[in-house]
Write a protein that binds this DNA or RNA. Structure first.
Ligand code: ZN
Ligand code: ZN
Ligand code: ZN
Ligand code: ZN
Lengths: 157, 157
DNA sequence: ACAGTGTTGTTATGCTGTAACATTGTTGTG
DNA sequence: CACAACAATGTTACAGCATAACAACACTGT
């Protein structure tokens, strides 16, 4: 988020929801997966797979790429994490559980990624697809630019 | 394109336009860049950098990655080619010259990529950004699914 | 105890992309 | 033409992103 906030709340909420969702579905929210999800939630920036790998290594133990990618695959399948294609990086979903299509606002300055779900936008996407007789199964919608906060900083300076 | 067509026309037109645009701007449409643009236009699918590399190698000579990536950078800067982030692949722009934001319809079956420029969609994107007080500089909008042709094939079968 | 399944560890490799420096080609100037 | 300046390409080396294949371990239910 651009504005400051108590981020520990974000993290705890995300972990609690993940726990609940996996419980419901009978999928296993193991310690490794929990650790990685927590790392991804260390802020509102998208996190790179190899940064996760490094952090795992620092916590002791010798982590290898598959460890991280398998956890990421799991988290994405469960809808707990999204991949930002234009960054090759991963971000926690702020509202997993309820199925949704999302769009991302990515600030190129502070790197904050905000997930939004605009109904209007979704409908426009649908309309565009329909008029081309195209059946959407998955969408990547990533908007890069400057967040409100970073633009105000620029003006002040 | 899903429907069959005389693709040599597409290619020739793309190359001619590229020539014209570079001429206008005083940028150099060298032989290498021309060859690579032509390869990208071998169809309406997105092409991978290392496939271009292989083709260069096959045409004799020992091409290395930077050769390809530099050409791609040039072509993208001139707006002759777009990158499809969700595929790590590159596709020729069917209407370079006129500045535009585009969206891509990517068929997961036949791999055809269609570039569209929907005004409604662009406006919805703008509206979503504005309402989040976000200033867009670049957008990635990639819709994966099935094109009309591939769905009809499925029904018939 | 045991089989079956899912998770993690390990090794190796493939794909994607760039940094840095050498060489060659092009353009304009005296 | 000789020469400087710059753009483009060649070359080597490496960094970053991701998966295949198999081994070891853990959890489940019988
Ligand atoms: Zn937060
Ligand atoms: Zn920002
Ligand atoms: Zn064509
Ligand atoms: Zn298709």
């Amino acid at each position: 988020m651009a504005h400051s906030h108590d981020h520990t709340v974000c993290v705890e909420q995300a972990l609690a929801e993940a726990e609940r969702i996996c419980e419901e579905r009978g999928s296993r929210f193991t310690d490794l997966r929990r650790r990685i999800l927590k790392m991804i939630w260390q802020g509102h920036k998208a996190v790179k797979a190899y940064d996760l790998l490094d952090q795992l290594a620092n916590e002791g133990g010798s982590a290898k790429p598959p460890t991280v990618y398998r956890a990421l695959d799991f988290l994405m399948e469960e809808g707990l994490v999204h991949k930002i294609e234009s960054l090759n990086a991963y971000i926690g979903c702020p509202h997993p559980g309820d199925s949704h299509v999302s769009q991302f606002l990515i600030c190129d300055k502070c790197e904050t990624v905000k997930e939004v779900t605009s109904r209007t936008l979704s409908e426009a996407v649908m309309a565009a697809a329909t008029s081309a007789d195209f059946a959407i199964r998955r969408q990547t919608l990533e908007l890069h630019g400057l967040c409100s906060n970073c633009r105000q900083g620029a003006k002040a300076a």
